[in-house]
Simulated assay, not measured.
Amino acid sequence: MTLLGNVQEGEWSVNVVTEPAEDGGFQSTIYVSHTSPDANFEHAFRHDRKFGSEREAALDGLRDGMTWIELKMARTIKV
């Protein structure tokens, strides 16, 4: 089964899709997007960890996506 998760904060959105890892466990792919009148921004990345359950993979992926947004808004990272 594949779990999907979504968190929105203002103009930012985080979507997560989980999938079985090749060597057991589950991984998630994280999609971060920002929508504004000036321009739209999208960034996707695969979570670097594997989890024992899809629930753990989805929740940690959402958490990492929100952390990524915080770093981006603080201008700590540039993409």
Rank of each mutant, 00 (worst) to 15 (best):
M1N: 07
T2Y: 09
L3W: 11
L3M: 14
L3K: 03
L4K: 09
L4P: 00
N6S: 15
N6M: 14
N6H: 13
V7F: 15
V7Y: 10
Q8W: 03
Q8T: 14
Q8L: 03
G10S: 05
W12P: 01
W12G: 03
V14F: 11
V14L: 04
V14S: 06
N15L: 11
N15Q: 14
V16E: 05
T18W: 15
T18D: 01
E19V: 01
E19Y: 09
E19I: 01
P20T: 05
P20H: 04
P20V: 03
P20L: 08
A21G: 03
E22H: 12
D23S: 11
D23K: 12
G24D: 15
G25R: 14
F26L: 10
Q27P: 00
Q27M: 12
Q27E: 11
Q27N: 12
Q27T: 06
Q27I: 06
S28N: 13
S28M: 10
T29N: 07
T29G: 08
I30E: 10
I30R: 13
I30T: 10
I30V: 15
Y31R: 05
S33G: 09
S33F: 05
H34V: 06
T35C: 00
D38G: 02
D38F: 08
A39P: 00
A39G: 00
A39T: 07
N40S: 11
F41A: 04
F41G: 03
F41K: 07
E42Q: 15
E42R: 15
E42W: 15
E42N: 14
H43E: 13
A44E: 14
A44M: 05
F45V: 11
H47R: 00
D48G: 09
D48C: 03
D48E: 13
D48I: 05
R49G: 02
R49T: 04
R49V: 02
G52V: 12
E54T: 02
E54Y: 05
E54S: 06
R55W: 09
E56R: 08
A57I: 09
A57E: 03
L59H: 08
L59G: 04
G61N: 03
G61M: 04
G61F: 01
D64E: 10
D64C: 04
G65K: 11
G65L: 03
M66W: 02
T67V: 11
T67C: 03
W68S: 00
W68E: 02
I69V: 15
I69N: 02
L71W: 08
L71N: 14
L71Y: 13
L71I: 00
K72Y: 13
K72G: 05
K72E: 15
K72W: 07
K72I: 07
M73P: 01
M73S: 12
A74H: 06
A74W: 04
R75W: 09
R75G: 10
T76V: 13
T76M: 12
K78A: 12
V79Q: 14
V79N: 12
V79R: 11
